[in-house]
Design a protein around this nucleic acid. Sequence first.
DNA 1: CCTTGCATGTCGCCC
DNA 2: GGGCGACGTGCAAGG
Lengths: 231, 231
Amino acid sequence: MRLVIARCSVDYIGRLRAHLPLATRLLMVKADGSVLIHSDGGSYKPLNWMSPPATLRVAEPETEDAESGVQEVWHVQHAKSDDRLVISIHEHLHEYSHDLGVDPGLVKDGVEADLQRLLAEQIDRLGPGHTLVRREYMTAIGPVDILARNADGGTVAVELKRRGDIDGVEQLTRYLELLNRDPLLAPVKGIFAAQQIKPQARVLATDRGIACLTLDYDEMRGVDDADSRLF
Amino acid sequence: MRLVIARCSVDYIGRLRAHLPLATRLLMVKADGSVLIHSDGGSYKPLNWMSPPATLRVAEPETEDAESGVQEVWHVQHAKSDDRLVISIHEHLHEYSHDLGVDPGLVKDGVEADLQRLLAEQIDRLGPGHTLVRREYMTAIGPVDILARNADGGTVAVELKRRGDIDGVEQLTRYLELLNRDPLLAPVKGIFAAQQIKPQARVLATDRGIACLTLDYDEMRGVDDADSRLF
DNA sequence: CCTTGCATGTCGCCC
DNA sequence: GGGCGACGTGCAAGG
């Protein structure tokens, strides 16, 4: 990894055009050729960047640019598209390189899979008398998060989200359309379950006869912990 | 901005839990307290991070950690939530600080808003005789990008995307469904306009009686520039 | 301040 | 390589 602090201006031309006026920034060149341009604020997203794989070519400035103070020009070219980044360096303030090696990578714990497991274990949160058929019920267009039966023996399809928005309702609608073509399952009711459900999603779901269920993750985990304590 | 190259392990606890095993990485501490942990590959997303505003507290390692080689522990605490990052530093390999100042920020050209403005100005690209009703026409389920009338006085709803995908067609379909319930507007025709339209999206749109329109942004901007030159 | 929808989204999975 | 779904999504604009 190569780190450069420089006064520079930057132009990106590719999926759109973007320009950064002259200022002091951090340029990070990674081993795979990707380049990140960071300021001293904002979140983790750089001001501008080039995704890997890319190649960096350093050139002398055009006469006009040289006269306006450009010392060197970095041409960063994406290997597979015609996206490119042009970095005009006016002043080189610091330079450092270090070989970091390959990273062992991130280990995550506690994502949506947990919510799904908890709801499957506490299936009566769908309503009294519900029984679990199975999680990740496969269909031709993808897996239904949870398939269950209600007290009357009717089939219920559950789409589970951490944050419930319109896309999730569309997703569940597609599943319901498909499942309702199966005479062994039809009629299939839909339940849209999420920790938080956006108003527009709730309107759309209700309009389509899909029930909404807000889940309290902490409460569900609490029940799970209480269950675990029995062993 | 403070840059540190260090052998470290990292733990994040907040909306989920995540762990990075011991390896050599770049730690970037920004002026607003945010921290980024980068490896020498991947795209612009760090392996782990803390968003601003946050505070960094450096502590001595617990006895047990010290015995396993930890020299110092960074506690990065988010100011508004209880998200936190714990960075256990085993070896400090490089350190550099530089005040970058405030960045003037990125200037973008070619995002959806630009495309929408140009299409509204050049509304006859929808076909001869079209007139603009308004941009961002509000409905209960969200704003229709452009509402227009065609030569026959019929209403036309336009969904605009930089890249036309299936979900864009779904979005327009929802708007059309809703708009067609309004007797003052019905029947409403749909036009799916994008710089690039994916084959599957085109098929779906056509199947639903929605017209597809491919937009040439450079050409549209060229017309705009030509107009501007008149003044 | 909260909600909403775009993003050069990125990332990982499966086909 | 494309489609699909999740993300600690981030981010800005608008009510």
